[in-house]
């Protein structure tokens, strides 16, 4: 009889217990994600735990997966003095032409410090889909912030970077004919990166204005 009384129905956990269990699970999950999964799977190691455990070597070595690192050179961050912004480096200029075959796309972006300014002008020989956007330093491309996607064949303007990172354009040829995009920029950026539709990326040199005027002399 006593044995029969011992057979009890399970006690359902209270909401507080459930919440505590879920909270604990989420905490441990984030810990595992940040210390083990991200370093080993993607080479992203925000806490340095992956390097300490020696598991970052497991991450795929495909360079394309790694966000574009900030440039090694001095960051051209403006120093505001009243209405004037001064920069600790030279004014840069750049000009590129991209020939987009049918359905091809290209991204071209410059590294700008927060509040740094750039002037730009681009024109396409045909219809293009475009997206003027930026990626924060160290953030994955999927976290990009879009600034302008209005349909246009040309644009002239100025841009002040809302955050430090790479900022620039995505141009896509939506049709079967070849389209040429020509872009000219100037401003206080330190590096340029070209991203192709096949997943490859190419760093491009930008030039100081002095380099151009000196060549003319």
């Amino acid at each position: 009889m006593d044995q029969e009384n011992d057979i009890r129905s399970p006690i359902a956990p209270t909401l507080v217990e459930l919440g505590r269990a879920v909270g604990f699970s989420i905490f441990v999950t984030v810990l595992i994600l940040v210390t083990l999964v991200l370093p080993a799977e993607y080479g992203i190691d925000p806490l340095g735990a992956g390097r300490a455990l020696g598991i970052t070597v497991l991450a795929p070595s495909t360079e394309a997966l790694v966000p574009v690192p900030p440039p090694n050179s001095a960051v051209l961050a403006p120093v505001q003095e009243g209405l004037v912004a001064y920069y600790p480096g030279e004014y840069q200029v750049d000009s590129r032409e991209f020939v987009l075959g049918p359905y091809e796309y290209v991204e071209y972006k410059y590294h700008l410090a927060q509040n740094a300014t750039m002037l730009f002008s681009w024109v396409a020989s045909g219809d293009v889909a475009h997206d003027f956007h930026g990626d924060r330093d160290g953030a994955p491309a999927s976290a990009a912030q879009s600034f302008d996607q209005q349909p246009r064949r040309k644009a002239d303007g100025s841009f002040t970077a809302p955050f430090s990172g790479i900022h620039g354009w995505y141009w896509e040829n939506p049709g079967g004919n070849t389209v040429t995009v020509r872009v000219t920029t100037s401003g206080f950026y330190t590096a340029a990166h070209e991203f192709h539709f096949d997943g490859t990326r190419v760093p491009r040199e930008v030039r100081a204005l002095d380099a151009i005027t000196a060549r003319r002399d």
Partner: peptide
């Protein structure tokens, strides 16, 4: 049962969260 449930939830969250980190995009024409 509690431990198993916790492990299951953690595993599900780890897998789900890690998959949200995008791989690289490619276009082949």
């Amino acid at each position: 049962q509690k431990i198993m449930m916790r492990l299951f939830v953690m595993a599900a969250l780890v897998v789900g969260a890690s998959n949200t980190f995008a791989h690289e995009d490619y276009r082949v024409i």
